[in-house]
Each structure stands twice: as C-alpha cells, then as structure tokens.
Design a protein around this nucleic acid. Sequence first.
DNA 1: TCAGTTTAGTTTGAAAATCAAAATATATAA
DNA 2: TTATATATTTTGATTTTCAAACTAAACTGA
Lengths: 153, 153
Amino acid sequence: MTVAHPHDALSAASAHSTDQALNHVIIEFYEKLSSWEHAIVRDKGFSLSQVHTIELLGVHGAMRMKELADKIGVTTGTLTVQIDKMVDSQWVMRRPHESDRRSILVELTEKGQALFLEHDALHLQLTTDLTAKMSAKERSLLLSLLTRMNQEF
Amino acid sequence: MTVAHPHDALSAASAHSTDQALNHVIIEFYEKLSSWEHAIVRDKGFSLSQVHTIELLGVHGAMRMKELADKIGVTTGTLTVQIDKMVDSQWVMRRPHESDRRSILVELTEKGQALFLEHDALHLQLTTDLTAKMSAKERSLLLSLLTRMNQEF
DNA sequence: TCAGTTTAGTTTGAAAATCAAAATATATAA
DNA sequence: TTATATATTTTGATTTTCAAACTAAACTGA
C-alpha cells in the first residue's frame, strides 16, 4: 500500500479509511434499498425487472430498447419479451424513433404513468422516513452531495 | 396536499420539494449502481444474486438461510438451490447453528472471502471515483449522512 | 455508388432461476 | 404432552434469461 501524498501521510491515510467506510455504507444502503424494492414489488405481483423498467421510463421518459436494456442490465432479446408482456398488460407502448428507423421507443402508457406515480410515492415515503431526523439544511446538503455523485457516474 | 406546519408554509413546501428531489436522486443512484453491478457481475460470469450473497456474507459475516433469503429477497427454497451451487463451487460453506438445530449458518470459505475482497476493491474504486471531486470534509459529511440513513432503514 | 460492416431489434431453443406447496425436523407455547 | 410455529429442503411447474441466428436499417470507405 503506497501513500498518495508523502508530504501528508496521516491525512492521506485517514482519507483512505473514510473512503473504505463510505464504500461500505454505500453497499449497505444499496442492499437495503434492493431488499426493500424486492419486498414492495413482490407484494404487488410485479417482477423486479418490470418495476425497474417503469421506474426508468418514469424518471427518464421514452427510451430506445437498446438504451433501456443497457440500463436494466439485460440483453435486448430478454427485453423484447419483457416489453411484449408489458405492452400486453398496457403498462408501456412502443412507437417508432423519429430519425432512426432501426430504433423503437418505449414509453409509459397512462396506466403505466399512474403505476409509476404510485410506486414513486412509496419511494418518497421511504426517503422521508429515512431523513426524518435530519434538519432541512442536512437534507439539502445530502441532496447536493448525491447529485454530485450521480453526475460523476 | 396539506402543509405540515401552517406557521411556516413556505419552508414546509420547500422542504417537501427537497424531499422529492432527494427521492429522485436516490432512485437514480440506485439505478446506476444496480446497472454497474450487473455489468461487473456479468463480466465475471456470476449471477447478480450470487454476488449479492457474497457481498452480504462479506459485510455481515455468517448468517442463517432465512435471514439471507430475506435480505436477498427470495424464498428459502430458491436460496437452498443457490447455496447448493455455491457450496459446490466452494464460495461458501454451511455449518450448524450453535443453539438452534433447525437453523443452518452460511459463511464464506477462504476462496469466497478472496472473491469478496476482490469485488469490494472494485466497489472501493467506484466510490473513490464518484467522490474524487469532493473535499475530505465533504466526504466525511456524506459518510455521516448515509450512515444515519442506514440506521433508520 | 455500392459492397462490407456495424447497430437495433426480434425470434428461437435451451439453460437457469424462481416460486408455491409439500415434507421433515426442531422449537415453542399452552 | 399436544398443538402450533419456525427453518430448511425437496419437488414440479412456470418464468426469466441468455446466446445465437435472423432481418432491417444505418454507416463507411473505396
């Protein structure tokens, strides 16, 4: 293990241990959120992947199949059958891409949009609960720090 | 929509909009992390669920089947077959629970521990990258805020 | 222009993951 | 003790997923 800044070994070492702690806190948060989502989803009778799709389309708007597959982390073949089912149950619809005739855009139907809003409300409740003990200043600080992390992603 | 504190409607409304923003930043972060994990995992030839197990056991130590199944979000039946495979490939092992003879503890083998450390290093690298532009003070602030969220979970 | 290559999406057939329900063993409570 | 609850495994069926082959459109470079 080498120290990045020999002129200040102590602070470098402590920065490193903060990163380790931060890393594990992030992993733990991810695990908890993931398990929460799983439970919510199972209760409602959806698959995790379907809700993930609803979430992505709700937050980002219409998206190409390829783009969606990449974000979800499945092949386009898998996504095709998944979207087929979601079209059948009227959560989403396909429409042609304006400029690229190879591409197809997927977007939420009204019913899908309603489902997104319902699911989003659960997330909001969770967020509110998790930050209930924070001051307004702390919450907005957390918002800005997380926003900056997302930008680097 | 009612306002929680009528004596200060404006700040209550703005606190609410911060919560909305915070909520969406959290969802976005979760999505990105999830997609990152998917990609990492696929490259190495593991399933997401297997790596999740490795992560959970690595962070929390030995755990009962039921506990692990709840955290991952699958039934114990599903977990039994998954752990069978992971025992075969020597990532984890089973051992009896000391006081409850119905229960079985799952824990990482040495090989599994090594895999965890390897995977954890990738996470650390990601964390370091995402927080690279933050000051030491900001990073430790983020650590403390996330720690508090985890505690409320 | 036009042949070759890349990219987007779908289809297909097989493999893997998952569930619900039944079965077994142990623990707890009345 | 007897009844009920909990932890795990097993089983059979369903669902999800992948890789590979295929079609169609876009791009690339003589």
